[in-house]
């Protein structure tokens, strides 16, 4: 049986797809056979972030409609043979995904995969609801910013009431916080919500802090999940996230400002 992870946030642009790509790659690199699914029908982008956009032949909707089988649609990652990508369809038909169809695909994947990562679209509409419905674990991606924190809280309410686990009165979805685009220097100068501030409101199990980092844009430019950039701060932060999710104890990094004493003194950027 696979473990189904949804990467969600409510708000757009906070780093869901970056996170989905990174953790799926991280899990696969550690030897766990992993599938990552793009639920953003009509606005497919995971394929670009994973660098497989030119290898898309069939997609998620084709599989649901029986126009292709799973093996035809799954794209094997070029960097890791334990990782497969199921791209979203570019159709504009909003009803292309169905609860039953998604359930069928996840069940079939579960037979063969250890982890299934569902990259949720932004918003709280159908695509987002379907992405989280079957989840066992939720990675709530949040920026230290008012609208993102509010939307995350809203999403937590939905996870707790509208999921399969909630409807069947099973154990609830396990919720984890990923605080992304964190800038310790701005936190220090009082212009950004701190980890403690965010936790006071959301109080979730913290999987990791991903620092604001140039490496994220560089990685998406190249179509290589940022976790493969092992020298970068964001890459290391995601590697920590995966390790913690798998049960390792690792101290949290990137919480404090690491600027040198003189630059700190004179406020250099």
């Amino acid at each position: 049986m696979a473990r189904i992870i949804v990467v969600t946030s409510g708000k757009g642009g906070v780093g869901k797809t970056t996170t989905s790509a990174a953790i799926a790659m991280g899990l696969a690199k550690r030897g766990h056979k992993t599938a990552v699914i793009d639920f953003d029908v009509g606005l497919r982008n995971l394929d670009l972030i994973m660098g497989c956009e030119r290898r898309v032949v069939y997609d998620f909707v084709n599989v649901i409609n029986g126009e292709a089988n799973l093996n035809q649609a799954l794209i094997r990652d070029k960097n890791c043979n334990q990782l497969y990508i199921l791209p979203a369809s570019q159709t504009r038909d909003k009803d292309a995904l169905t609860l039953e169809g998604v359930g069928r695909v996840l069940e079939e994947l579960s037979k063969d995969f250890k982890y299934i990562v569902c990259d949720s679209p932004a918003g709280i509409e159908k695509g987002a609801n379907l992405a989280m419905y079957y989840a066992d674990d939720a990675f709530v991606v949040t920026n230290p910013e008012v609208s993102s924190v509010r939307d995350s809280d809203r999403m937590l309410g939905i996870l707790a009431s509208k999921s399969r686990r909630a409807e069947l009165r099973m154990d609830p979805i396990k919720e984890f916080l990923l605080l992304t685009r964190y800038d310790p220097s701005r936190v220090e100068s009082g212009e950004m919500l701190s980890l403690e501030d965010v936790q006071e409101i959301l109080s979730l199990h913290l999987l990791g802090i991903i620092p604001e980092s140039k490496s994220v844009l560089n990685a998406s430019n190249a179509g290589i999940p940022v976790i493969l950039d092992e020298k970068s701060d964001a890459g290391q932060a995601y590697a920590d996230v995966v390790a913690r999710y798998l049960g390792e104890k690792r101290p949290h990094r990137f919480v404090e400002n690491k600027k040198g004493f003189l630059r700190k003194l004179f406020g250099g950027k």
């Binding site: 924190v149 509010r150 936190v187 950004m192 501030d197 006071e200 700190k264």
Partner: peptide, 30 residues
Amino acid sequence: MSLLDYFRSSKSKTASVAKERLQILVAHER
């Protein structure tokens, strides 16, 4: 906080305003 910031900053810290607003809003929505 840097030394220059220390002399510069007389304005209130926006992060604490953000936190207060969020706490009220989130409690209401919950």
